[in-house]
């Protein structure tokens, strides 16, 4: 990890020396003590194994956005039946589908081109990178409110040239030989910018011509393989729910699909929905004075410490521990005040 130069990179607002000179010794020590007095569920003395490969941290404690509200719905426990029903499958992936419906579903319609990187799926602004192995093209989608600023900015780069992009008169700007960008006017809530280092001007324009809008299924199917695809979602959920105690009548269509996340994030969605359903039952039973039902719900939550998917996720991040801490509160008869936020089902 040695300092390297990047050419014209601006200096950072703080250097490491600046930071080291800050008078924070006491605060640093206090934080250390605070953290180390925080209980952990796994305090064995086993040394950490050497990482077999650089590991990505998927620790994220998901706190749901308003769009991901989980609704407890009663219905048949059909998820154990392989295949399920098409309509419910549609419900399960409905958020992702809605997100895709709102997104600029652009693909390069040419052999060899595929999406290699996605940033910001389901967000107002994001970026798709397409590659055919030797060429790359970035498609940015941005909020409509930023259109004027970006257009004005690019107009400083070079004189704009009218081109057609995805059936709409647009403006191409030239950063330099082999580096072009095109801004497409606002459509709906967003606009597109397509920047590429795909060769000379004619090659860039040729790739622009190969951009197409697609339907939702086609677009989602073109996403990189590591994301959980809607078509695979039911099967994935069924797998994740193996060994998981679910409330009577639990319906997997209540599992929100906030984004096409990785297995860790999706596992958090699945287990969070189940756990929230149990907590809701426990809360209702407690208020009703139904001790048996309350105890059953608390026990089910305690069983989460053996749910295979959580044990799998526990190696990757912090979400399972959040859930288990909440389960312990319930077991102790305490209402877990912020459980919806902590589990991502608010």
């Amino acid at each position: 990890m040695t300092k390297s130069t990047t050419g014209p990179m601006p200096e950072p607002p703080y250097t490491d020396d600046d930071v080291m000179a800050l008078p924070l010794d006491r605060a640093r020590q206090e934080l250390l003590e605070e953290i180390m007095s925080t209980p952990t569920l796994h305090t064995d003395n086993t040394p950490a194994p050497p990482a077999d490969k650089p590991r990505r941290t998927r620790w994220l404690v998901i706190v749901a956005s308003a769009a991901a509200a989980a609704v407890v719905v009663t219905g048949p426990v059909w998820w154990a039946q392989r295949g399920g029903s098409e309509s419910t499958t549609g419900n399960v992936s409905s958020w992702a589908v809605r997100a895709a419906e709102d997104a600029p579903r652009v693909l390069v319609d040419a052999p060899g081109w595929e999406i290699t990187y996605v940033y910001g799926f389901g967000s107002p602004e994001g970026e798709l990178t397409f590659s055919n192995g030797s060429q790359e093209l970035d498609v940015h989608w941005r909020s409509a409110e930023n259109y004027d600023r970006y257009f004005r900015d690019r107009a400083h780069v070079s004189t704009g040239t009218p081109v057609e992009l995805l059936g709409k008169p647009s403006t191409m700007f030239t950063y330099g030989e082999g580096d072009y960008t095109t801004i497409r006017p606002v459509e709906g809530d967003s606009f597109l910018e397509v920047r590429g280092g795909v060769g000379d001007r004619s090659q860039y324009l040729a790739v622009l011509d190969q951009l197409v809008f697609t339907d939702v299924d086609t677009w989602l199917a073109a996403m990189p393989p590591e994301v959980v695809m809607p078509a695979e979602r039911v099967e994935t959920i069924q797998g994740m729910l193996e060994g998981v105690r679910t409330p009577p009548g639990f319906d997997i269509s209540t599992i929100p699909a906030e984004d096409l996340g990785d297995r860790y994030h999706f596992g958090a969605r699945v287990t969070g929905t189940v756990a929230c359903a149990w907590i809701e039952r426990w809360h209702q039973a407690t208020r009703a004075g139904d001790d048996a039902a309350a105890n059953a719900a608390a026990a089910a939550l305690q069983s989460s410490k053996q749910w295979p998917i959580l044990l799998e996720m526990d190696r990757q991040g912090d979400y399972p521990e959040v859930l288990w801490e909440i389960a312990d509160k319930v077991q102790a008869g305490r209402f877990p005040v912020a459980y919806k936020q902590g589990l991502g089902c608010d």
Binding site: T38, T40, A48, P50, W59, R315, Q316, G317, D318
Partner: peptide
């Protein structure tokens, strides 16, 4: 997070 996941820190 590192404290809680110390075994996973490479």
């Amino acid at each position: 997070v590192a404290w809680r996941r110390l075994a996973d820190v490479p």
